[in-house]
Design a protein around this nucleic acid. Structure first.
Lengths: 225, 225
DNA sequence: CGATACTTTGACCGCCCTCAAGCATCGTGG
DNA sequence: CCACGATGCTTGAGGGCGGTCAAAGTATCG
C-alpha cells in the first residue's frame, strides 16, 4: 500500500493530507482486494473499520425484515464508507465488480481525526455532499415518475463517471436492473420496460455493459431539478 | 442573546463548547424570531448564514419547476441548518410555528470551526446522524406502503419529541396534511384517508394539534426496520 | 361573520406492480 | 466443446394501490 502513488488520492479523503501525513495514514491502514459479488460489511454488524474505495464499484443497501430492499447508494472510487460514526453498520456493502479498498480501524482513524483538523474538514465536506445527494434522491423517490427516475439515474451516473474518467456518453452500469429498481423504488420489470422504451425512442442505446446516451438534453430535461 | 442560558444548548452544536467559547460564539451570531409561515431562507438563494434552531419547528422543502414539492425534513429545536456548505441553499426553510434561530455568518462560523476542533467534531457527528436519517427516509419513500409511511412518520415524530420533552403518546403535528404528504411521497387525500382509517381502527386519535398514539406497538411493527 | 385555508370523503382512473413465461448470457463441468 | 443450470433481462396480461378530480365539511382569523 503506497498512498503517495494512489491513483485516486486527489479524489478521496486523502487529498487533505501532506506526504508525511499520508505516511501516518498508511501505517494505520491496509489495502485489500474484494472479488465481485463479495460482501465488504453487513447491515447490523459491528463497524470496526472505515473504508476508502480506490477501485471498483459497490452497492450500499438496506434490507427490510420481509425482504424488501432499498439501495441507498452506489460507491465509486474515491468514496468513503463509514461517515456515519455509529457503532453498527446501517447498510450492507457489496462489491459489484472486483474492488479495492483501504481499510482503517475506526478508533485509529478517529484518533487521527483529532490530530489532523484538515482531514476532519475534508471528511465533513464529504459528509455534507453525501447529505445533499441523499436529499436530492428523496425528491427522486418521492416525487418523480418512473421515466424521470430512470433519466435522473442515468444522468447522475454519467456525472459521477465524468469526475473520474472525464465526460462521455458511454455510461457503464455494473449493477443489475434489480439493483437499479431497488435504488429508484421501482420493480425490475418497470426499469426494463422504461429502458427498452427509451432505446426504442432513440434516447439511449443499450450496450452489453451499460448504456450509451444519445439524447442527453432530453434526459436532463426529464431529470431537471 | 445569552448562550449560557440557552434552554437547548445541550441538544445543539453548542454543547461542544466551554463557557468562554460560547462567549466567542455569541459575538459572531445573533438570535432572531420568525413568525409562523415566514421563510427563513429560500432554495437557490446565496447561503450567507448558518442557523441553529432554538425554538419552534421548520419545514425544509425542495420545489420542482413544475410545482411538485418534496419535504426533505422537519427541523426541531437543537437542529442545525447549513450543514451542507454549498454556496447556495439547496432547499427552502419555512417556519411552521413561531420560531427562534441563532444565526451566524458562514465565514465567521467557518473560521471558528478552524479554531475549535471539538465544534467541528460535534458538527460532523450531527451531519453523520442527518445522513443516517436521510438514508432511512429513502427506505420509507422507496419501499413502504402508504400505511407504513404514515406509521413510520408518527413513530419518528414521537421519537424526536421524546428527545426534547420526554416520551409521550401525544404527538403534536405543527405541519399540514399536505406537508406530511410531501414528506412521504403521498397526496393530501391519501394522508387524510390513512389517518382517518387508523383512527377508526383505534390505532390513533386525531386531536386538534396533532395525534395521540393508542397502539404504539402496532405502529412500530408497521414502521419497523 | 365572511373569507380563506385546511381536512375529509367519494367516485373514478391510471401508473406501476404482480404474476407468468420466454429469451439471452454466462460460467462450469462432463 | 457443448450441455446445462443459474442468473439476469425482456415482454405480456391483468389487477390494485394510490393519484386525480370534485365537492362538502371545518377550523382559523381578520
Amino acid at each position: 500500500m503506497d498512498c503517495c502513488d494512489c491513483e485516486i488520492k486527489d479524489q478521496s479523503v486523502c487529498c487533505a493530507l501532506d506526504p508525511d501525513e499520508l505516511d501516518a495514514l498508511e501505517r494505520i491502514g491496509r489495502s485489500q482486494g474484494y472479488p465481485a459479488k463479495s460482501t465488504i460489511f453487513e447491515q447490523g454488524r459491528e463497524a470496526g473499520f472505515v473504508y476508502n474505495l480506490t477501485a471498483g464499484a459497490l452497492r450500499l443497501s438496506k434490507l427490510l425484515p420481509d425482504g424488501r430492499r432499498q439501495v441507498v447508494g452506489f460507491a465509486m472510487p474515491g468514496d468513503f464508507l463509514g461517515l456515519d460514526f455509529e457503532p453498527n453498520h446501517s447498510y450492507t456493502a457489496d462489491a459489484l465488480t472486483p474492488a479495492k479498498l483501504c481499510q482503517f480501524s475506526r478508533v485509529g482513524f478517529s484518533d487521527m481525526l483529532d490530530d489532523k483538523p484538515r482531514l476532519l474538514r475534508r471528511l465533513m465536506a464529504m459528509a455534507s455532499h453525501e447529505l445533499a445527494l441523499a436529499q436530492e434522491q428523496m425528491v427522486v423517490l418521492g416525487r418523480r415518475t418512473a421515466e424521470e427516475k430512470i433519466a435522473a439515474f442515468l444522468v447522475g451516473m454519467r456525472k459521477r463517471y465524468a469526475r473520474i474518467h472525464g465526460p462521455s456518453v458511454h455510461v457503464p452500469l455494473p449493477m443489475t436492473r434489480l439493483d437499479i429498481g431497488d435504488y429508484l423504488g421501482l420493480t425490475v420489470e418497470t426499469v426494463s420496460r422504461m429502458m427498452t422504451r427509451m432505446a426504442r425512442e432513440k434516447t439511449i442505446v443499450i450496450v452489453p455493459d451499460g448504456v450509451r446516451l444519445l439524447d442527453v438534453p432530453r434526459l436532463e430535461r426529464l431529470a431537471e431539478v
